[in-house]
Amino acid sequence: MSIEVNIHRSLRHLTRGKAKVEVNGNTVGHCLYGLVKQFPGIETKLFDKKGKLLNYIDIYVNAESSYPEELSKPVNDGDELSITLIIGGG
């Protein structure tokens, strides 16, 4: 299934400047692994050493929060996945 991933501005240097990347997958996790396959440098910005999503990574599917258990959330052909970063400044 073809999924479009919106890449947060701060991660685009790892996707050769691309703001949108096409990936294939049935779940959010599959899609993110597909993204890492295309752009290996992004892996450590998304996952910890155990393969868990980092705390500051925020994933939305069709503009809806996929938290909790994001990686197992199913996606369908044509869905749009957005990677954003949780921010804490004030």
Binding site: R9, L53, D58, S65, Y67, L85, G88
Partner: peptide, 28 residues
């Protein structure tokens, strides 16, 4: 919350709407 040129906002009505912990995983 803010960072650089980016910011976020959400209003939380206890008992009725999603709260911050409903959408955020933990400390960063």
């Amino acid at each position: 919350a803010v960072h650089g040129f980016e910011g976020r906002a959400m209003t939380i009505i206890p008992g009725e709407t999603a709260c911050l912990r409903c959408i955020y995983r933990g400390a960063i």
